[in-house]
Amino acid sequence: MSDLHHPLPVPAADQHWNLDAIVAELRQARLRWRGAHGRLRELRARELPSREALAQIVQALCGTLFPMRLGPPDLRDESEDYYVGHTLDAALNALLAQVRLELAYQARQLGRDSARAEADAVDIVRRFAAGLPGIRGLLDSDVVAAFQGDPAARSVDEVLLCYPGVVAVTHHRLAHSLYALGVPLLARMVAEIAHGETGIDIHPGARIGPGFFIDHGTGVVIGETAVIGARVRLYQAVTLGAKRFEVDAESDSGALAKGQPRHPIVEDDVVIYAGATILGRITIGRGSVIGGNVWLTRSVPPGSNVTQANLLREPLTPSPSPSTAAA
């Protein structure tokens, strides 16, 4: 019989792992890290948000957005509003605790007084909550776009329950709201929860219009400063990335500049097929179709049909200079 079928051996009662020395060495490693990053003060509690807590919050928020589909299996129509109100209250209070942690962290990083963190945290969560009906409206348009854009889809319910692209876009709509409200770490954590689940990597800073559909989705990458219009459709392994990274002019260490527009602008009604790579602050004109496996670093005018073959034959419109590119 194969050894795979035998149970793991039980350690002897006197097995010794030299744990005291390992724990001490790990503490020294932590102290070296904290010293290198100016964090040698005593830590009395966790100082950063929790990915596990955020995953539970997002799951609850999805249930409140689509209660009869993503809520609990025993939910009934007559108790729908009660469930939404009760779950939303718990989720928002849990989110408030995570926002407090990020704002306190930001204050420490920037050397600012954290006295206003509590009031700012409440304001952020209040504004986030007020934006949820608008997020539901955007998600409705995304679900309809997925249903209409995929001949294999039999219903909008199938799309909502089964499509990884819809999962990723749902997380993005929530993450982008948090990003815009000034808690980018929480936003990035929400985005990475979806990335790990779906293989679709959307930075929460990306601005995406209504009716957005990612078909299949695995390997899609959308960068922080990408701007995507209405009714855009992407297929698997599409990259909307940066062509180059600018160096911070004020940095002596050659650090990269942060927040510079460096990702594509995709206008309304564009379709980008599988494996296409679009790099830099270029514009894909309205109604264009970008073929599979195209490598594109120059702008194309509205109504373009770009394939590998016509890239070799025809010159394209040059990309705008950094000084004239849209923000």
Rank of each mutant, 00 (worst) to 15 (best):
A90L: 13
A91M: 09
A91Y: 06
A91G: 08
L92Y: 10
A94S: 15
L95Y: 03
L96D: 03
A97H: 09
A97K: 08
A97R: 09
Q98C: 04
Q98K: 06
Q98G: 04
R100A: 03
R100T: 03
R100W: 03
L101W: 00
L101T: 02
L101K: 01
L101S: 01
E102H: 07
L103E: 02
L103S: 01
A104W: 08
Q106F: 08
A107K: 12
R108H: 12
Q109S: 07
R112Q: 11
R112V: 02
D113Q: 05
D113L: 07
S114H: 08
S114A: 15
R116W: 11
R116K: 12
R116C: 12
R116S: 15
R116D: 15
A117Q: 11
A117I: 07
A117D: 15
A119G: 05
A119T: 12
D120A: 09
A121R: 01
V122L: 14
V122E: 14
V122R: 15
D123L: 11
V125P: 02
V125M: 04
R126L: 13
R126D: 14
F128V: 05
F128S: 05
F128K: 03
A130R: 12
G131P: 08
L132A: 04
L132M: 12
P133A: 10
P133V: 11
P133C: 11
I135F: 13
R136I: 11
G137K: 13
G137M: 11
L138Q: 13
L139Q: 15
S141D: 14
V143T: 15
V143M: 14
V143I: 15
V143C: 14
V144T: 14
A145R: 09
A146R: 04
Q148R: 11
G149C: 10
G149H: 08
A152H: 10
A153Q: 12
A153R: 11
R154T: 14
R154F: 01
S155Y: 06
S155N: 07
V156M: 14
E158G: 10
E158W: 11
E158S: 10
E158Y: 10
V159H: 03
L160K: 10
C162N: 01
Y163G: 00
P164V: 02
G165T: 05
G165C: 07
V166D: 02
V167H: 12
A168M: 06
T170K: 00
T170Q: 06
L174W: 02
A175Q: 00
A175M: 00
H176D: 01
S177H: 02
S177N: 00
Y179D: 03
A180Q: 15
L181C: 07
L181S: 09
G182F: 04
V183R: 00
P184H: 05
P184S: 01
L186I: 13
L186R: 06
A187T: 13
R188S: 06
V190T: 09
A191H: 06
A191N: 00
I193G: 02
A194L: 03
H195F: 01
H195G: 05
T198N: 05
